[in-house]
Amino acid sequence: MTSASRWGLRTVVLAYLAFLLVLPVGVILYRTFQHGLSPIFDTLTTSEAAHAYEITLIVALCAVALNTVFGVGAAVLLVRHRFPGRRILDALIDLPIAVSPVVVGLALTLVYGSRTSFGGWLTDHGIQIIFSLPGMVMATSFVALPLVVRAVAPVLAEIGDEQEQAAATLGASAFQRFTRITLPSIRGALAYGVVLSLARALGEFGAVAVVSGRLIGKTETVPLYVLDLYNNFNQTGAYAAATSLVLVAVVALVASRFLRPRGGLNLS
């Protein structure tokens, strides 16, 4: 490239990234810290805020745990086994990528809401899913569903199954083969998938907004709390809570950067 066109490209790209990425994040950091640390400390230590962090953590950890088991199981199934409907399963796992979070919330409400026949039956038996933690876990699990599968599957395909077969001939049980051979060799990719899922789960907004009912102090997560504070003109609080999520995102980014297997996340 000529130096003129190189500088042209650099200028356009850097200006675009500055306006779209760097300035927005810079402005919110500035507005959060502009009056020092004490207002941040005040807003983030109220009982409402503490509760929001607690709920967010519980929901995210449950959803990530479920998705990890599902993700490893589905990856092993897709890579190691041939069965009828395999390609359909493969395609269905990517479905959540293309579904709007709000539609996810609506979908779960239409099956598990207390006014539906199944949800009503569950409510009669003392199980509440919508406007409660189980529904929030399901919604979070839905939106982050493909991440672990897509992180683990390529690595599983690459390592092959010779070692597992060798272990089998030496008498290792299926469980031993999984814990001693398969799991250690997908460790890095699994960690990458878990970090991505956790980042997604901690920040989920739309789907959780619908299924949680946004009951303040009960089912409110930090992303919902951010909007709540903003709408109540508590901007200092909103910016502080938002910044705490920015920091979580940055940590996740850096962690995933180190964990990312070559080739990255292979979406579908």
Partner: peptide, 21 residues
């Protein structure tokens, strides 16, 4: 690394940062 920020940032946080700027 920062190219992936929109993937990692919660959408409502993106919303707040964009309306600020």
């Amino acid at each position: 690394t920062i190219i992936d920020l929109p993937f990692a940032l919660p959408t409502i946080v993106a919303g707040v940062t964009l309306i600020l700027l």
